[in-house]
Measured scan of single mutants.
Amino acid sequence: APRKVEMRRDPVLGFGFVAGSEKPVVVRSVTPGGPSEGKLIPGDQIVMINDEPVSAAPRERVIDLVRSCKESILLTVIQP
């Protein structure tokens, strides 16, 4: 079942996760003590960023979407 995860941007750590460059977009790592800790799990597949589906989106679009979130971000993720 999809999970909705909302995180506030940390001034130092950002959102505190690293996503892979393949499709679908998969969470590779979560920064300890960062905003994503306890919310995202490595292996989570990101299916939506805010209200935009990203399963088939180019990597550049995913990066732009994350960067455009100055304060908070809403991710919809699934464990494949």
Score class of each variant (00 low, 15 high):
1 A>R: 04
1 A>M: 05
1 A>F: 06
2 P>Y: 14
2 P>A: 09
2 P>D: 09
2 P>F: 13
3 R>M: 06
3 R>D: 02
3 R>H: 06
4 K>N: 05
4 K>L: 10
4 K>R: 15
5 V>I: 10
5 V>S: 02
5 V>C: 03
5 V>A: 05
6 E>D: 10
6 E>G: 07
6 E>R: 12
7 M>N: 00
8 R>T: 13
8 R>C: 07
8 R>S: 13
8 R>P: 08
9 R>M: 07
9 R>T: 04
10 D>N: 10
10 D>L: 04
10 D>Q: 04
10 D>T: 04
11 P>L: 07
11 P>K: 09
11 P>T: 08
11 P>A: 07
11 P>G: 07
12 V>I: 10
12 V>R: 13
12 V>E: 10
12 V>C: 10
13 L>V: 14
13 L>F: 11
13 L>S: 13
14 G>V: 02
14 G>S: 05
14 G>F: 01
14 G>P: 00
15 F>K: 01
15 F>T: 01
16 G>D: 01
16 G>Q: 01
17 F>R: 01
17 F>L: 04
17 F>K: 01
17 F>E: 01
18 V>L: 07
18 V>A: 10
19 A>E: 09
19 A>M: 14
19 A>G: 09
19 A>Y: 09
19 A>R: 01
19 A>F: 13
19 A>T: 14
20 G>W: 08
20 G>R: 08
20 G>F: 07
21 S>N: 14
21 S>C: 11
21 S>Q: 09
21 S>V: 05
22 E>N: 07
22 E>W: 04
23 K>V: 07
23 K>E: 11
23 K>P: 04
23 K>C: 12
24 P>I: 02
24 P>R: 03
24 P>V: 02
25 V>T: 14
25 V>H: 07
25 V>M: 15
25 V>D: 03
26 V>A: 08
26 V>S: 08
26 V>I: 13
27 V>H: 01
27 V>A: 03
27 V>L: 03
28 R>D: 12
28 R>V: 09
28 R>A: 12
28 R>K: 14
29 S>T: 12
29 S>M: 09
29 S>H: 07
30 V>L: 08
31 T>E: 13
31 T>R: 12
31 T>Q: 12
31 T>Y: 08
31 T>S: 14
31 T>G: 05
32 P>L: 09
32 P>E: 12
32 P>W: 05
32 P>T: 12
32 P>D: 09
33 G>I: 04
33 G>A: 10
33 G>R: 08
33 G>N: 09
33 G>Y: 07
33 G>V: 04
33 G>K: 10
34 G>K: 00
34 G>I: 00
34 G>S: 14
34 G>M: 02
34 G>T: 10
34 G>W: 00
34 G>A: 06
35 P>R: 03
35 P>G: 02
35 P>W: 00
35 P>N: 05
36 S>V: 02
37 E>R: 05
37 E>P: 00
37 E>W: 09
37 E>V: 10
38 G>K: 08
38 G>A: 08
38 G>N: 09
38 G>D: 10
38 G>S: 07
38 G>W: 05
39 K>I: 14
39 K>P: 02
40 L>M: 06
40 L>N: 00
41 I>H: 15
41 I>F: 15
41 I>Q: 14
41 I>E: 15
42 P>S: 08
42 P>H: 07
42 P>N: 10
42 P>E: 13
43 G>V: 00
43 G>R: 05
43 G>D: 08
43 G>S: 05
43 G>W: 04
43 G>A: 04
44 D>A: 05
44 D>Y: 02
45 Q>C: 08
45 Q>D: 03
45 Q>W: 06
45 Q>G: 04
45 Q>E: 12
46 I>F: 05
46 I>P: 02
46 I>M: 04
47 V>G: 03
47 V>F: 08
48 M>C: 14
49 I>T: 02
49 I>Y: 01
50 N>A: 07
50 N>K: 05
50 N>P: 00
50 N>V: 02
50 N>G: 14
50 N>R: 05
51 D>M: 09
51 D>S: 11
51 D>C: 07
51 D>A: 09
52 E>C: 10
52 E>M: 12
52 E>N: 11
52 E>R: 11
52 E>K: 10
52 E>T: 12
53 P>R: 12
54 V>T: 07
54 V>A: 05
54 V>K: 00
54 V>H: 00
55 S>A: 12
57 A>V: 14
57 A>Q: 12
58 P>S: 15
58 P>W: 03
58 P>A: 10
58 P>V: 06
59 R>H: 10
59 R>Q: 15
59 R>I: 11
59 R>K: 14
59 R>M: 11
59 R>E: 11
59 R>S: 10
59 R>F: 14
60 E>L: 07
60 E>N: 12
60 E>M: 11
60 E>K: 13
61 R>N: 11
61 R>C: 10
61 R>G: 07
62 V>S: 02
62 V>C: 07
62 V>Y: 05
63 I>M: 12
63 I>P: 01
63 I>Y: 09
63 I>A: 14
63 I>F: 15
64 D>M: 05
65 L>A: 10
65 L>F: 08
65 L>K: 13
65 L>H: 06
66 V>S: 03
66 V>E: 03
66 V>P: 01
66 V>R: 01
66 V>F: 10
67 R>P: 01
67 R>G: 12
67 R>I: 06
67 R>K: 14
68 S>C: 09
68 S>Y: 09
68 S>Q: 14
68 S>K: 11
68 S>H: 10
68 S>M: 09
69 C>M: 08
69 C>V: 09
69 C>T: 11
69 C>K: 09
69 C>P: 04
69 C>G: 05
70 K>W: 04
70 K>C: 08
70 K>Y: 07
71 E>M: 06
71 E>L: 05
71 E>T: 11
71 E>V: 06
71 E>R: 10
71 E>G: 11
71 E>D: 14
72 S>M: 08
72 S>L: 05
72 S>E: 15
72 S>G: 11
72 S>K: 15
72 S>I: 06
73 I>C: 11
73 I>R: 02
73 I>F: 05
73 I>K: 03
74 L>R: 15
75 L>V: 08
75 L>D: 04
75 L>I: 08
75 L>E: 03
76 T>R: 10
76 T>S: 11
76 T>L: 06
76 T>D: 09
77 V>F: 02
77 V>N: 02
77 V>Q: 02
77 V>T: 05
78 I>M: 15
78 I>F: 11
78 I>G: 09
78 I>Q: 15
79 Q>F: 05
79 Q>V: 05
79 Q>D: 14
79 Q>W: 05
80 P>V: 05
80 P>T: 10
